[in-house]
């Protein structure tokens, strides 16, 4: 069984985000980028499924400019067998990304689409669900446990009410949550080998994808600073204040 894993290049989670003073966005030039941490979890899961013999081939896919090749190399070092680079220099919003991933999934006849539940840059949390919708296949988001059995998957999902279990027919989209696994450290020899694995470049046109109309961002500002509240003198006053806010 073939698994397709989407990986996104994002500003590294350690980097402190700076909003440009003219409100045109956040500073991304010259700052460290790396693979979206949720996508690392998706990669790790794919590799574990392959180690268990459930998956036979892992194909990593990304959409973006030339620099995204780094991210694909990271995916290859994790254990992807090959990679597909959908080349697009401009901004790609979730629906457009989903159309491209759906086209790749179809072409590759992959049974499993694994992706992070969201990217830590736009925090959209949409693409996986959209891929499933476009192909009319099952989705299991926020996965914290995945078991594959033949042409079915049993997925435990972390939802607000607790842990929900779904059974889905394959092909299906599974998006990964933080507790699904702990991604491994990449080994130097694997990074070395990854340099030699194949990356196929395709364009939106090759995939027959027309970008969807996007949201227009008109302004980006830093979050408002919190302001100082009230001071109380005793625990009684504190309890009273909390009760008046409906918090106790």
């Amino acid at each position: 069984m073939k698994a397709l894993v989407s990986v996104k290049r994002v500003v590294d989670y350690n980097v402190r985000i700076q909003v440009k003073s003219d409100g045109s966005g956040v500073v991304t030039d010259g700052v460290k980028h790396s693979m979206n941490p949720f996508d690392e979890i998706a990669m790790e899961e794919a590799v574990r499924l392959k180690e268990k013999g459930k998956v036979t081939e892992i194909v990593a896919v990304t959409i973006g400019g030339a620099k995204n090749e780094e991210t694909l190399r990271t995916a290859l070092a994790f254990g992807a067998d090959r990679a597909i680079h959908v080349k697009e220099e401009g901004e790609v919003q979730p629906l457009t990304a989903a159309k491209a991933f759906a086209a790749v999934l179809k072409k590759e006849e992959a049974k499993l689409f694994l992706a992070g539940k969201q990217a830590i840059d736009d925090d959209a949390n949409q693409t996986g669900q959209m891929v499933a919708a476009l192909l009319d296949i099952a989705q299991a988001t926020f996965a914290s446990k995945v078991e594959i059995d033949g042409d079915k998957a049993t997925v435990t999902r972390e939802i607000d009410a607790g842990l929900e279990t779904l059974e889905v027919d394959l092909p299906a989209v599974i998006t990964t949550d933080l507790r699904l696994n702990e991604p491994r450290y990449l080994k130097l020899p694997d990074i070395m080998k990854a340099k030699k694995k194949p990356i196929e470049a395709v364009s939106f046109a090759d995939l027959g994808v027309t970008p969807a109309a996007g949201l227009k961002t008109t302004k980006t500002v830093p979050p408002p600073a919190r302001s100082k509240g009230i001071m109380v003198k005793t625990t009684d006053e504190l309890v009273e204040a909390l009760k008046s806010k409906g918090l106790l």
């Binding site: 919003q93 979730p94 629906l95 989903a98 925090d123 959209a124 949390n125 949409q126 693409t127 996986g128 669900q129 959209m130 499933a132 919708a133 476009l134 989705q139 988001t141 926020f142 939802i159 969807a212 109309a213 996007g214 949201l215």
Partner: peptide
């Protein structure tokens, strides 16, 4: 969050999260 993108994709629109 699970549901809305599935609706948006079916309606062929981007979603606001």
């Amino acid at each position: 969050k699970d549901l809305a993108p599935r609706i948006a994709a079916k309606l062929d629109v981007q979603q606001v999260s």
